[in-house]
Amino acid sequence: MLRIPCPFCGTRDHSEFSYGGDASVDYPALDAPAEAWLEAVFQRENIDGVQEETWQHLHGCRMWIIVERDTRTHEIHSVRPAHPGMAQTQSPERGPADRS
């Protein structure tokens, strides 16, 4: 079982979260050509190492977060809100609200 430090709730079991997908994908504009969408929707790297992935704290605050995780060890390097505005309000000084 992974333990994910939610930036809003603190460290929680991964069973509270649902996996989204590859957080490095830049989704194209809605009117972008099909090729760009094919790339974004179907083309994935199978990373052996650290990757960024989106998770939602589904059974918690329901926020989408970006988790930097090592696919080999499951070690979690960092977690931040997926919403860029939210991420800004959580400056490093304030740190994640870890009330595990």
Partner: peptide
């Protein structure tokens, strides 16, 4: 969950 994802990750 999909609407939340869109609003938080793509269309913030």
């Amino acid at each position: 969950a999909f609407l939340e994802e869109l609003l938080q990750t793509r269309w913030s």
